[in-house]
Design a binder for these strands. Structure first.
Length: 586
RNA sequence: GUUCCCGUAGCUCAGUAGGAUAGAGCACAAGUUUCCUAAACUUGGGGCCGCAGGUUCAAUUCCUGCCGGGAACGCCA
């Protein structure tokens, strides 16, 4: 169904058109002055210059055409030419009646199925997931849900970091520790054992150790780089060992992502495109885009359109290894070939903006994508500690994701016991509720921030349950669920009667389509978080001074129950788009 | 040095293609529970929207410069 604002804008636009003005001037928005009106149109001010008329004169003419329309209870002019609208309760009630019956909460489909590929998550093989991986996963997952709801066909790809130097580091470290392993016997022809010789715990110890060693010792680093080249050339033992790293790491990742309710359609990685690289590079060399420079093969990406200085994108290092720019470019080739996407959106740390600028420029320069294909780096800011530096635990390390979640769960469990909620439930169900509360707290605390800005990671804030938090929203939703259950359900199609007590809340329910449009256009989940909170807060105020179940007038009670139902539906929908589940009780 | 991002209340942050009186949470002060879940609600104090110009009928929002903070800048990802 159409949104209220677009319907009103069209109506007002026609009034502008009748004066020979662009109907776009009729754009209606939510009022900034709710004390004066519900909706406003500022078009008369903008039109004044073009029409060479006084804005009030234009507004007067528009108002004259609209004043007797039954949609409005009031249309008037304020200040220099703002046109203010108050809807008739009859129209508002009828419109909201349709919203209440709509399973999309009144949100139209914005797009008829263009394919969008979302690249997010991107954890590295052989490293454990820490809080730093949180943002990419949950922002990306939310953007995927938003675009999917908007009508796009979405494909979420985790794009594992599985082909880089860290693998060579770990392999060479293992070779030094266990030279007798058959993986390092060049004469061994296989098959290799099916069980991994290393566990995730082993890898968590090995990677930091080898990483440190490589930083301190150049010959150690050379060894790691050589192992990387050998791996990329698929030396049998190394490749078999690497496959174990991937299996073990992916298993651990899946556990984390399941808890976070983060979903991927594809579990591809940098290594997935390895076989495409050789052909792609030689093609680019033949066409003159890729050139040799200082022993490496690069694509100069500086264009003449601007005088910005960009380093070239490196395809092959001097030692013959490929880099993530190479795999990212090849991945574009693969995605275009397999899915012909309208957009590819990368939800990756903002600090990589230069890298993506290089990759995107290279892709366009070499004609690897159609000009109309959107390539976007939807970057996100760094999680900093209180000192403004990237977050570290007190011990100086990074906090593991599992530990963070466990802290939240423990706090939620304490809360349940204190309030004696769910005492009659089984251990498993109580655990499920605590998990949902903890995940809501963590996700909401992160997602409510504008994606691009750095933000202060505060443990207390991530596990806080009061105020503008995930648990607050869950709590409001749960309260409504409980109330609806006590009321014995909602009468579908019940007449909606706006009153002083609830009108502002009803009006809030008309805003969802535009909110979603903004969130989808800007890849901005925080817009949804903010709106869900506003809804919950407005509902809570209403709930506080209105006793619904004891209302004697049946018509009024039925209208309020529709209100409760609609608020719940929208909150659940908004939370669903951020990947937050609402429990039945809490 | 070059480029990018950020600067809004004591703190953490919103402000959705420029609009009328800039909002929320936390913290602080005072209140609310014989009644639908107090993880709640109500009320209060708190702001040269970093600074200076410019564009505009209108700038927290767009442009330029400066100041302050962060980041990236060829063989890590």
């Amino acid at each position: 169904m159409r949104s209220l604002l677009s319907t009103l804008s069209e109506l007002v636009g026609r009034a502008f058109a009748e004066q020979g003005l662009d109907p776009a001037f009729g754009k209606v928005s939510i009022s900034d002055r709710l004390d004066l009106c519900q909706f406003q149109c500022n078009g008369a001010l903008a039109a004044a210059k073009i029409a060479q008329k006084n804005p009030r004169a234009i507004a007067d003419a528009v108002v004259l055409l609209l004043r007797n329309n039954s949609v409005f209870a009031r249309v008037d002019i304020a200040g220099p030419g703002f046109i203010n609208f108050v809807l008739s309760d009859k129209y508002l009630g009828e419109f909201l009646g349709q919203v209440a019956l709509d399973d999309r909460c009144g949100v139209p489909v914005f797009n008829s199925g263009d394919t969008v590929i979302l690249d997010y998550g991107g954890p590295n093989v052989a490293k454990s997931m820490h809080v730093g991986h949180l943002r990419s996963s949950i922002i990306g997952d939310s953007v995927r849900r938003i675009l999917s709801f908007a009508g796009y066909k979405t494909i979420g790809d985790i794009h594992l970091g599985d082909w880089g130097t860290q693998n060579g580091m770990v392999i060479s470290e293992l070779e030094m520790r266990h030279p007798d392993w058959i993986y390092f016997d060049k004469d061994f022809t296989g098959p290799y054992p099916s069980v991994s010789p290393v566990s995730m715990d082993d890898l968590e110890e090995i990677y930091p150790a080898t990483s440190k060693a490589c930083k301190e010792d150049e010959t150690r680093l050379l060894k790691a780089q050589q192992a990387t080249v050998d791996l990329q050339n698929k030396r049998a033992g190394y490749y078999a060992l690497w496959q174990h790293f991937v299996t073990v790491s992916v298993l651990s990742m899946k556990r984390n992502f399941e808890v976070l309710n983060v979903h991927f359609d594809l579990w591809k990685g940098e290594s997935s495109v390895h076989d495409l690289i050789k052909g792609m590079v030689s093609d680019l060399q033949e066409r003159g885009f890729a050139v040799e420079d200082d022993g490496a093969v690069v694509i100069p990406v500086k264009t003449n359109e601007d005088d910005k200085k960009y380093p070239p994108l490196i395809l092959y290092k001097r030692d013959g290894a490929v880099m993530y720019g190479t795999t990212d470019l090849a991945t574009i080739v693969e995605r275009v070939r397999d899915f012909n996407p309208a957009k590819i959106v990368y939800v990756v740390d903002q600090r990589q903006s230069l890298h993506f600028e290089q990759v995107f420029r290279a892709a366009r320069l070499c004609g690897l994508v159609l000009p109309a294909t959107e390539l976007t780096h939807a970057g996100f800011g760094t999680m900093n500690g209180r000192d403004g530096k990237p977050f570290k635990t007190r011990e100086g390390g990074v906090m593991k994701l599992e530990d963070l979640i466990a802290m939240g769960v423990q706090k939620a469990e304490e809360r349940l016991s204190e309030a004696n909620i769910g005492a009659d439930l089984g251990e498993e169900e109580r655990c499920d509720i605590a998990m949902k509360v903890a995940v809501a707290a963590i996700k909401f605390a992160d997602l409510q921030n504008d994606r691009i800005a750095d933000y202060i990671f505060d443990l207390d804030r991530l596990t806080r349950f009061e105020g503008k938090t995930g648990p607050y929203l869950l709590y409001q939703a749960v309260r409504i669920k409980s109330l609806l259950e006590k009321a014995g359900g909602v009468r579908r199609g019940a007449k909606i009667i706006p009153t002083e007590a609830d009108r502002s809340l009803w009006l809030l329910l008309t805003e969802l389509p535009e909110i979603l449009g903004v969130a989808a256009r800007n890849y901005a989940p925080h817009i949804l978080c903010d709106h869900a909170f506003r809804l919950a807060q407005a509902f809570s105020a209403f709930y506080g001074n209105t006793h619904i179940l004891s209302e004697p007038h049946e018509e009024q009670k039925a209208s309020w129950l529709v209100l409760c139902h609609s608020v719940l539906a929208q909150i659940e929908h908004l939370l669903g788009l951020t990947g937050i589940d609402v429990p039945e009780i809490m």
